[in-house]
Nucleic acid binder design. Sequence first.
RNA 1: GUGGACGUAGCUCAGCUGGUAGAGCACCCGGUUGUGGUCCGGGAUGUCGCGGGUUCGAGCCCCGUCGUUCACCCCA
Length: 416
Amino acid sequence: MVRQKVQAPKGVSEYFPPRSKLFEFVRESLIAPARSAGYQLMELPVFEDTELFTRGVGESTDVVSKEMYTFTDRGDRSITLRPEGTAGAMRAVIEHSLDRGALPVKIWYSGAYFRAERPQAGRYRQFYQVGIEAIGLDDPAIDAEVIAIADAGFKAIGLKKYRLEITSLGDAQSRAAHRIDLMKFIATLELDEATAARAALNPLRLFDDKREEIRAAMLKAPLLMEYLSDASRAHFESVKGYLDALGILYVLNPRMVRGLDYYTGTTFEFVHELLGAQSGIGGGGRYDGLMHELGGQELSGIGFGLGVDRALLAAEAEGVISVDGFVSDLFIIPLGDSAMVKALGLAMQLRNAGKVVEIAFGERALKGAMKAADKSGARYVVVLGDNEIATKSVELKNMNSGVSTSVTIDSLINAL
RNA sequence: GUGGACGUAGCUCAGCUGGUAGAGCACCCGGUUGUGGUCCGGGAUGUCGCGGGUUCGAGCCCCGUCGUUCACCCCA
């Protein structure tokens, strides 16, 4: 009787060989620029007190109102699997008083996030992000640097067909003034119930509606950009100036809407052209009120989250990465028991020297072992038998050219 | 959460108007003594996603369910 197979939960992304190698490459590419800019790792829990998100991300957001994985733990606490990274990062900064030291606090993190949405290509219930946060600095130059770091990550992967959209959501006063006029405007539109309800929660959301009639109607809506205070405007102009100087291309999108309520001021999004509906590969911005909202000091902050799954999908769509190249440097084929002992020792020795070394295990004919070596993607192969052990030298075979050269076992490390 | 499409060997898929499943690739073994990739020969593999129904009989029809996918909502 065959047992029922256990399947992975709906909508999770999983990576295994050979594609996991690409995932690894993409994630590392996205992290590296942050490390190079002096950001340091923060490893955070994947679950948090639910209140962190209702308070931090905002109850009016879809993320909080209908996409959170929330459950009660054995101590009757309401726990939520993190739907995004910034709120947790701020919580940790406050809790461990990192903001009492030198500013800005610059951290990066990478891990899994969870949202209970209907899965779709590039939209998973568990997905991976790389993020950074820079806390405690208002300088527009750091806005530009944060954006540049994200851009550098995408470029390191080899992505080309994406664009950077930026806008400014201004400060609280700017937004309040705009909101009044926007509400008035929306009141003149004829909207279905669901849309009207959405507009009531956050009128900016209508700017992001994909239906043509709504888009057309919203063309005449008042734009937040026109309501920016002098300080917000100056800050944004400065950010743009730095981006120009860095040669980072961007398009202004005054209609950009973000799904998280904490964004203020500079806000940005990276959109890929080949990804269909789920085209955002990264986004971020300032969140100048978040630290205070979560019980910390009144410190500003800026950061981003980059989608590893989507960046990988984008890279595949552009055809810029593929699984080829060698997996290991050397494949050792031992013939017989004493050769195996020798092979295990030699492998460890070479591994300690930084080489990737595999061994042919199991009772196989030499031909079978050679095939295994071929499939393993090893660069070189060495057969280790009694002759080799006696003469202390091996035939080092280059699997690409098929050419063998004789080397002593001791000098093997130099030949690889 | 809403709507559409799909679900056959590890993978990509074929299977005509219902008669108890096939191809290519991959995989394993062999082509005589210690060297892979080509070639040749041989081989294993499917409760046709799952459950129910209609029928003498269902991979093909109906219902449900799970999953995938595309779009909406939303977002990484």
